[in-house]
């Protein structure tokens, strides 16, 4: 009985967290050092979460899957409420840090509510760059890796160059690519593609070389052609590591994207941050960082979902 009660309580911990944050925000005055936002955006958001967490708590009583997951993660989300409240006290209420660089919640949220058009435009622009660059990079990287892994001659002639060029941070090439490519878009795509290309090529080729020889011998005794050995044996066996290469690739692509955007490209989240910084609007900088964090998290989640689908067979063999 007691257990049941604590479990129910756990499901309402997020709701309690929001209550704490809301109480602190409403009961304590903001420091008057902060410039006042046009609307009480932070209060709106807290009301919104107050309602959603309460509804979630109620609904989870009837939905088994949600119940299980909330009983597990409820404490964490309650804790998030506390952390948010503490930051509110330190920054918003007491203004312990210079308010120019550490704006209160209302002002950061104002960037979203008042400037969502430009932020959405920037997200769209960054996505275009990232997807184009990533596809080129992953595609060429995969082909290079397969050639390096299977073709001894190609490996002999090309591999040393790849070892030489690969480890150089792709962003170093920004000044050069800006002069080579007619548009900054093309230059940025090149930089992103380059950074993805290396990690995908490296992981693909080493993974293919590490495929147990027995797999190829088995397929040869079964009458498999060379093409079959490459596409149906070598590549599938190397898939987990290739995926790891894609994973590293996308992380370096984020980095390249942000750097490229801060250097010369118009629009994009990286550009937005450096623009806001140049105008000393630090609330905009924080808004940009939040966008990037959420954005990267979404892409990685997508990538992991994809992995679970493609590499389903791996579940029992290895974990990472």
């Amino acid at each position: 009985m007691k257990n049941k009660l604590t479990n129910t309580l756990r499901r309402f911990l997020p709701f309690l967290g929001v209550i704490v944050a809301l109480a602190i925000h409403l009961l304590i005055e903001d420091s008057d050092e902060h410039p006042e936002a046009e609307e009480a955006y932070y209060t709106w958001i807290l009301y919104f979460f107050l309602v959603t967490t309460f509804i979630l708590g109620i609904v989870s009583t009837f939905v088994k899957k949600l119940k299980k997951s909330l009983e597990y993660s409820g404490a964490f989300w309650g804790g998030v409420g506390i952390v948010v409240a503490i930051i509110d006290i330190v920054i918003g209420k007491l203004a312990l840090f210079p308010v120019l660089f550490f704006p209160k919640y209302d002002n950061i949220l104002a960037q979203f509510f008042e400037g969502y058009e430009i932020i959405l435009k920037c997200i769209w622009h960054s996505t275009k760059l990232l997807v184009t660059g990533f596809l080129y990079g992953a595609g060429f990287g995969f082909v290079t890796g397969v050639l390096l892994g299977f073709n001894k001659k190609f490996n002999y002639w090309i591999n040393p160059y790849i070892k030489l060029i690969g480890p150089i941070p792709a962003t170093i090439w920004i000044p050069i690519s800006l002069t080579i490519f007619p548009t900054t878009f093309g230059a940025s795509v090149f930089i992103i593609a380059l950074s993805v290309w290396f990690s995908v090529a490296l992981m693909t080729s080493s993974a293919i070389q590490a495929v147990p020889k027995a797999y190829f011998e088995v397929s040869r005794t079964l009458g498999a052609s060379s093409a079959f050995q490459i596409f149906r044996v070598g590549i599938p066996a190397a898939m987990p590591s290739i995926f790891l290469g894609v994973f590293y690739g996308i992380i370096s692509a984020f980095l390249a994207l942000m750097t490229a955007e801060m250097f010369g490209v118009k629009y994009g989240i990286g550009w937005y941050i450096s623009w806001q910084k140049a105008m000393l609007v630090y609330s905009g900088v924080y808004a940009g960082i939040i966008v990037i964090a959420v954005y990267c998290m979404l892409i990685l989640t997508l990538l992991f979902k994809l992995r679970d689908k493609i590499l389903n067979w791996q579940k029992g063999t290895l974990k990472w």
Binding site: P212, A214, Y215, E217, V218, S219, R220, T221, L222, G223, A224, S225, F228, R232, V233, P236, A237, M239, L311, W313, Q314, T317
Partner: peptide
Amino acid sequence: PGADRGFAFQQATLFPWLNIRDNISLGLRA
């Protein structure tokens, strides 16, 4: 090597990414 001579190794060396049926039919597919 040729399909007229089958070979069974000390380790089963099944391909972990294929289910049992696909593993068994590997040579036929090849």
